[in-house]
Design a binder for these strands. Structure first.
Length: 735
DNA sequence: TTTATTTGATTTTTT
DNA sequence: ATCAAATAAA
């Protein structure tokens, strides 16, 4: 019986919510689609709905499954739910797709022929395994790069296509090769008792499809399923949700089709666009009131994304007020751009803005370097999210490789990684012989190495080296099985394998840095031990392999934050700089070539809507790539999609390269009339459709279009690409 | 087997 | 410009 206190608690859940938010929170049974615009309080809706289900006794805590994409989002949701329901949150599954799948697989992996101790391969492990398959199948890795193979295989997996199914639809020699590699790769992974990221989803779907009792178990266990960022789900995730929520149909998905930016990773925007077809009885609720940004920022972002087709249609608004206009800056080159950003940050600092309120976004990781240099020079401390990750460093992967090999003796990848690191006289040849022997005899790499004396063709020095190596490993494995705390075990590993000694002997600054990184890993392991006293090495390994970039984010240390636009999703900052707003950079030329500018535009929308108060968008006329000479580019088409009265730019000419060049120069040279006059009288480069041209970098091509603004479109013979170039600046000549 | 040297690719975005 | 991988030399 609900008492008065409970009633009050339930009512409290609605205070401060707007009408559509409240409607979503009150929804109990049946499918629900919440279209949540940026900053519209979707996490609030999710957490309050969970609390509502609990307080009204519609669900027990352990009947709720809430899924996010990043650990950070999961943790935030967990904390916010805890504020509402207290300790009950501990019984809930609030986690990422990948963690939830890994957890289900640990329980039932043996049904699919894996052990509970399976290893999770990251992208680099995956790449290496694929390379190995290419070698074994005698495929020319120059023609068919591991990278391309990986992309194809991953794509197939995301679509739940097995090697056999893939083989049925091959339409080219390339795809034929992919089918062969895919098949071999799957065999090798399975033999190594390993799964890649995609497998975590695929194998869970397999598990639920093949074993009805497992499916029934989870269907009745999770009576309410909630999914965040639904627009980013791929087909495997879609199918997984279908299987989990198939019985009761209590599925709530929250997403924003305008923020779908992971198409390249297999995310299928049709999942969210077609939700009401999949679930015709679904309620749909739109959240359009924004609680984050000024109206100028919202109107600008709305205007940009309005150029996309295939939207469900949302229009963000706020009660906050207009705010400042969008600040658009043109710079001479990437260095000037970075200098502007650094100077502006200093100026903002004088105004009382603190560093952690500022973020700088860019399209590609490589763009951070110039900015980093400039910030360092200006004495502005910063943190970079993404780029080279901590867990990607060689020494960290080695240390983890040792643990993986101890836990999973079948793990070839881990074995070959650590067997000669540090150097112990076991080279490529000896290692291959042991692995070949393992293969033919059906042994695990561990067993084969342990019985090195029985491996044919192996030299006596190598046999001895293996003996020494394996006696250390055996000792460590015994210790692992005694449930030694992970931190302690890791220290033992580093000491007894001689890893630390080898680094200390190097006496270089790099080695010192590596030792520090390893120390940080030990600290992380000790923290894990404290956090989960009953945890195992295997669980620790799983946890760190599923970490994402955003999980490294710190928010309280007076640091300016740098990251890619993709990493920015879900975050907010009072001041945002989006740099590199040039056609070719953003939208990226690859996307332009592949006709996928809409996803780039959504990315732009994501970036812009991160800003609460001030939004800067900068572009450079010249940008150097690979450290070579600068390439001339055009300002991003997205900038021109922002209504001018919302920006601080003076009148822009509608058409004509002349006036555009004048404006550019006039501002760049701070109003020098001479410079402006000179430019405006310089001879214009004139091209017509059909002209044969030569470009300094791209070679020969033909003009296929002439656009207003002095833009020529050239299709190049070399790589068949079509590029938009600025006639006056691009190094092109008529032939 | 290890180390030094050269080559080649790399830049989209990542759970 | 930088880093990994392939190749040559020790």
């Amino acid at each position: 019986m609900p008492d008065a206190a409970t009633d009050r608690r339930v009512e409290d859940l609605f205070t401060g919510l707007n009408a559509p938010q409240e409607e979503a929170v009150r929804h109990v049974d049946g499918p629900l689609l919440v279209l949540a615009g940026a900053g519209s309080g979707k996490t609030r809706v999710l957490t309050h709905r969970i609390a509502h289900l609990i307080h009204t006794k519609h669900a027990r805590a352990d009947e709720i499954l809430a899924i996010t994409f990043t650990n950070k989002a999961a943790q935030e949701m967990r904390e916010r739910v805890e504020l509402l329901v207290g300790r009950a949150v501990r019984a809930m599954w609030v986690m990422t797709f990948h963690s939830a799948c890994a957890r289900m697989l640990r329980a039932d992996a043996q049904r699919l022929g894996y052990t509970r101790q399976f290893t999770i391969y990251d992208a680099a492990d995956q790449r290496r395994a694929i390379k190995k398959c290419l070698d074994e199948l005698d495929v020319d890795a120059k023609r068919f790069t591991p990278r391309a193979m990986q992309a194809q295989i991953s794509d197939a997996k995301n679509k739940l296509r097995s090697p056999e199914q893939y083989r049925e639809i091959v339409g080219s020699y390339f795809e034929q090769t992919v089918a062969d590699v895919y098949e071999e790769y799957e065999r090798q992974l399975h033999r190594a008792n390993a799964m890649d990221f995609d497998d975590l989803l695929v194998r869970t779907v397999n598990l639920l499809e093949l074993f009805q009792e497992v499916r029934d178990r989870y269907q009745s266990a999770f009576r309410y399923v909630l999914v965040d960022e639904y627009q980013d789900t791929n087909h495997a995730q879609y199918r997984l949700l279908q299987l989990l929520a198939g019985g009761h149909r209590n599925l709530m998905v929250v997403g924003d089709e305008d923020q779908s930016v992971y198409g390249f990773r297999g995310a299928d925007i049709r999942n969210i666009l077609g939700f009401d077809e999949d679930y015709p009885d679904a309620s749909t609720i739109k959240l359009e009131q924004n609680y984050r940004s000024t109206q100028s920022i919202l109107s600008s972002a709305n205007a940009v994304v309005a150029n996309n087709r295939g939207r469900l249609g949302k229009e963000l608004w706020t009660e906050v007020g207009e705010g400042d206009s969008i600040k658009i800056r043109e710079c001479d080159d990437d260095h000037a751009e970075a200098r502007f950003v650094a100077a502006e940050i200093e100026r903002l600092g004088d105004e009382g803005v603190s560093r952690e309120e500022i973020a700088i976004f860019y399209r590609t990781n490589a763009m951070s370097r110039v900015v980093e240099d400039m910030l360092t020079r200006a004495g502005i401390s910063y943190q970079v999210i993404g780029g080279t990750k901590f867990y990607d460093r060689a020494e960290i992967k080695d240390a983890i490789g040792y643990l993986n090999f101890i836990v999973n003796p079948q793990d070839v990848q881990a074995f070959s990684r650590v067997v000669n690191s540090p150097r112990r006289g076991i080279g490529q040849t000896s290692m291959s012989r042991v692995l070949a022997h393992a293969n033919t005899m059906g042994l695990t790499p561990w067993e084969a190495a342990d019985g090195a004396a029985g491996v044919p063709l192996l030299g006596s020095a190598a046999v001895k080296a293996f003996g020494r190596f394996m006696s250390v490993m055996t000792r460590l494995k015994e210790r692992a099985e005694l449930e030694t705390p992970v931190g302690e075990l890791l220290e033992d590993v580093l000491r007894e394998t001689g890893y630390t000694d080898a680094l200390q002997a190097e006496r270089t600054i790099e080695a010192q840095g590596r030792l520090e990184n390893l120390e940080a890993l030990v600290v992380a392991a000790r923290e894990y031990d404290t956090r989960s006293p009953d945890g195992t090495v295997g669980e620790f390994l799983q946890e760190i392999s599923l970490l994402s970039e955003q999980d490294n984010l710190r928010d309280d240390e007076g640091l300016v934050t740098l990251m890619t636009l993709h990493n920015a999703k879900g975050l907010e900052y009072p001041i945002v700089f989006i740099i590199g707003c040039e056609d070719g950079m953003f939208p990226h030329s690859r996307a332009i070539d592949e006709g996928d500018v809409e996803e780039e535009r959504r990315l732009c929308y994501v970036g812009m809507t991160r800003a609460m108060r001030d939004l800067y968008m900068t572009f450079a006329r010249r940008r150097s790539t690979f450290g070579g000479p600068g390439q001339y580019g055009l300002r991003s088409r997205f900038l021109d999609e922002i209504p001018r009265d919302l920006t601080d730019e003076p009148e822009r000419a509608q058409i004509g390269i002349r006036s555009r060049a004048v404006t550019s120069w006039a501002r760049a040279s701070e109003g020098s009339a001479a410079a402006a006059a000179m430019t405006s009288t310089a001879p214009a480069a004139v091209f017509a459709i059909g002209d044969d041209v030569v470009h300094a970098a791209f070679g020969e091509g033909v003009v296929t279009g002439v656009d207003p603004g002095g833009v020529v479109v050239v299709r190049f013979a070399g790589d068949g690409s079509e590029r938009r170039l600025m006639a006056d600046y691009a190094p092109i000549k008529r032939r």
